[in-house]
Design a protein around this nucleic acid. Sequence first.
DNA 1: GACCTGCTGCGGGCTG
Length: 723
Amino acid sequence: MSSAFDKLARPVQKWIRQQGWRELRDIQARSIRTICETNADLIVAASTAGGKTEAAFLPLISQVLDEPFDGIGFDLLYIGPLKALITDQAMRLEGICQEAELPVIPWHGDVSQSIKTRALKSPKGILLITPESLEALFIRRGLEIARVFGATQAVVIDELHTVLDSERGVQLCSLLTRLELAIKRPIRRIGLSATLGDMDLAKAYLRPDAASSVQLIEADGGEAELRLQLRGYVSGDEDENSPSATDAIAAHLFKHLRGSDNLVFAGARQRVEIYADRLRELCEREHLPQEFYPHHASLSREHRDFVERRLKDVAKPTTAVCTSTLELGIDIGDVTCVAQIGAPFNVAALRQRLGRSGRREGQPAILRQYAVEAKLTSESSFVDRLRLGLIRSIAMIDLLLEGWCEPPKPEALHLSTLVHQILSVIAQRGGASANVIYNVLCREGPFRQVTTEVFANVLRAIGHPETDLIEQSGSGLLLLGKTGERLVEHYSFYAVFQTPEEFRLVVDGRDLGTLPVDNVLAPGMLLIFSGRRWVVQEIHDLEKVIVVKPAKAGVPPVFGGDPGDIHDKVIEQMFAVLEGDFKPVYMDAVAHTMLEEARAHYDQLEFQANNIRSLGEHTWIIATRFGTVKTSTLALALRSEGFLVEQHDGFLVVEAGDETPDLRMVLARLSAGYTGDIFAGAENLITEKFHVYLSRPLLELDAVSSRLVPGLLPGMTSRILQV
DNA sequence: GACCTGCTGCGGGCTG
């Protein structure tokens, strides 16, 4: 401990002693040495509550105290993806900074204007901010950026893994570049991250120009013992005497989770509502106090805070039935067990979820996986017979145990976010030449895949008189057009991601939460929401408000969503499960029977000998053996040839149209080199917030860079034809 | 066939 401890400033050492810490954690000691002895960028990777924040800030605060930079401005910048995280971290840092007499400024949408105004007047200390609020500073106070961050020594990016290669991550990367350009020097970057399978892409994200010089400090495994059970349930065979799969799972959860803190990941908000409703009913029927609560993003902040407080409160046993809202972010303490209903979409999330349990010394991490599969009849489709949900659950558990998880996706063009950043640079500078914008965003910033030609086409699209986001002045300077000005002026501009339109659900003047507008509702209709039952009283279309009152029955609403994106490796593992004969020890008898059924049917379809199987004269099943991106590319190519195509994990069901040629002939043609128009299959190309301003060719380019791989079609189809 | 995240400036009314 001594050598690392000795490097810290006096007030920081004093704070550590006050905490009664006997020693620094390994990642903290290593991080202190790296930060004090080098100027390197750094990633600190450890699980939640692993002491990452202190690992970064103890030495950084020491440097600010011992070697302050000349000039004014915030000394340190922290960027967090959630408001709640910023509030939490500000409280933790205040403890350390009180001793050091350094101000700590939390800055997000819920922080009062007066705190922000005061902080901007004399910026110093640590600024904790969201990417969106930082964006707002660039747009509203573009000319003050150099003054506000003139003395900034380092920027700490929390939950780095959640922003990697997302729209928000590209925005943040762009803002960091623009920050360094504004103050005309690099700022040390420190990323705090969960441990990922492959950290190289995280390094490249943190410092694109010098990924290899980014230092990595990773916590040693030291993982808790894992206890695992996968239970199978058959749905659709309920009669008066046997309960439905949902009731059976609810009863099992009720019996095993009551009395402790747990998280039940139900996969979709609608299922969260269904299970929370059943569990509440079970408590009422047994005259027991309520301890099961729903938690998802459409529920009011008030209700979510209540559930989070109950989880933190050790005196009240609480099980949250939830979506990924409780996967990351604020610390809710240790939970006894994590349950997962239905197959998850990716291994990375499964690992993150599991990390919420087994954190206390000597306690195992417990995962209860529930797989629901349809009852088989003579009419059942091959999808039901292959039990793809169960197979995916097994494949994902296998990969989890191997320590694998999905790497961040390779970089896409991100043209929607590019449009946003072009407008932002123009607003920041009050006008800029095309050349300057290209240098800032595409040469120095994150849009490096964008060629000058594509960039010019983007400018043309958003400068088109009908789009009118930008216009050119006589001197060649690019300025905001009328529409562009209106867009940038409104606060809704700062976020780069799209959000759906919603109704507010109100009872007695209090907000219950929100519902997507595509729910068809009328007064008198019954609803399950927030774990309780309601009847719709009034609908105000203009104000987007629905007034409800309590009721005795109800149905859960539809929340919608995007199709999941399953990685190639997961599909590969699913085929290994179908083709293997091992019997996972963690499964119950029902799950074993289902696995046997799946394997028997897989053999019967003879996919080991042939990837293409005819079902009658006009229908085929193709085993693509690829993940979502590649499989949907092939689906689109076949649709553009006139086939009707249905997509499943690693499989396509293809039906001939009226005048379609033979499937094998088409696949052979694709394998010889694809020349067709993949978009003739009519794909919706407006998927991101600023896509509406781009031209059709640019949208196709953007889709091909991120969601489709037509270039791989020849290779894929020859592999499919080979077996 | 899914989930999550975020937001400024101004003016009006009220309190001390």
